[in-house]
């Protein structure tokens, strides 16, 4: 039996060296290593040998089996290799990869992160505050007394007569100034609420507030800072303008408009045919606000600004329906 086995080995090794086709290789495997293969048959016979012969024969058969299996794998690998020019062309490299599922950050979060990054680089630090706010911080200390028409500028959700859902992120101005002395340079992103719901309003939305107070801060600085922001956010070539406006807690107050991103200024529905889009409210901090936080308006000056994130996201991504932000439809979220 030993001789037969050795003969089988020699024959098999010779054959395998000559194989150049997958089909032949497979036939080889079946011929020798398959269930009814020649080698397998020998192995089955080993059990019938005399007990003292078994170990040696078993060992030999196993060695040959391993040898043939190894050579089979080598030959297969050789045929697979590009050099062989054979099977490599059969591997479909275009099949989709085994991809992990990818999630999507909400466009609002993306924009907030981008805005915060821009201002962080300039030296503003990010602060956070409560959504439910005292009337004092939301209005009173921002120079919006009770019974003042400026209260009509923002429809307010009330919890009690003294507690509101903040209508803007501006209360953070007061909270921060109250807690520290100048210099102050902060931005405050977050949710805000107004009692307003229609095609262009949602009762909850997001703002980012900014505040810089120090000695010698000017309206020119406000313009420079916000121009830099606009250019980083919307591109270096974006024209912008500062237009007088009114906020009770800043004076002078300015709205910042950018050249309409849709029509580039020729006039379209998005910009109500004005060629300009309002994206920011800003102004020099009103001395009345300093009075509430005990800063000396003859020593310190500063500017504040606030922007609506939904609006910026809509302009940036060309979203035409504000309601989409809070429907959480994957067909929307997946696009970001």
């Amino acid at each position: 039996m030993k001789a037969q086995l050795l003969e089988l080995e020699t024959r098999a090794l010779k054959e395998i060296d000559a194989i150049a086709e997958f089909s032949e290789l497979e036939a080889f495997r079946i011929r020798y290593l398959g269930k009814k293969g020649q080698l397998t048959r020998f192995v089955k016979q080993i059990g019938r040998l005399a007990p003292e012969e078994r170990p040696a024969m078993g060992k030999l058969a196993n060695r040959i089996k391993k040898e043939l299996s190894d050579r089979f794998e080598q030959a297969k690998a050789a045929l697979d290799s590009p050099k062989a020019g054979g099977r490599a062309s059969l591997m479909d490299l275009t099949l989709p990869g085994r991809a992990p599922v990818r999630g999507h950050l909400h466009p609002i979060s993306r924009v907030i992160q981008e805005v915060c990054r821009i201002f962080s680089r300039m030296g503003f630090r990010v602060v956070k505050g409560p959504n439910v706010e005292l009337d004092y911080y939301n209005f009173e200390a921002l120079n919006i007394p009770r019974d003042h028409p400026a209260r009509d500028m923002q429809d307010t959700f009330y919890i009690t007569d003294n507690i509101v859902l903040r209508t803007h992120t501006s209360p953070m101005q007061v909270r921060v100034m109250e807690s520290q002395k100048p210099p102050v340079s902060i931005i405050a992103p977050g949710k805000v609420y107004r009692r307003d719901s229609d095609v262009s309003h949602t009762p909850m939305f997001h703002q980012v507030e900014g505040l810089l107070v120090d000695k010698g801060v000017t309206f020119g600085d406000l313009k420079g800072t916000l121009a830099s922001f606009v250019h980083q956010m919307f591109g270096n070539e974006t024209p912008l303008r500062f237009r007088p406006s009114f906020f009770p807690f800043t004076e002078p107050s300015a709205e910042v408009d950018i050249r309409c991103v849709m029509c580039k200024g020729t006039g379209c529905r998005t910009c109500s045919h004005t060629g300009w889009l309002e994206i920011l409210g800003s102004g020099m901090v009103d001395p009345e606000v300093y009075r509430f936080v005990d800063y000396d308006p003859d020593v310190y000056s500063g500017f504040a600004f606030g922007m609506g994130i939904e609006r910026i996201a809509m302009l940036k991504y060309g979203i035409d329906d504000i309601q989409l932000f809070f429907k959480n439809d994957m067909r929307f979220l997946r696009q970001f």
Partner: peptide, 22 residues
């Protein structure tokens, strides 16, 4: 407003960092 020149403020670094959760 448009005639007031653009300038850039010197922003002094703060002792504090961002809010913890940011």
């Amino acid at each position: 407003f448009d005639r007031i020149p653009l300038t850039y403020p010197t922003i002094r670094p703060s002792e504090q960092g961002d809010a913890a959760e940011v």
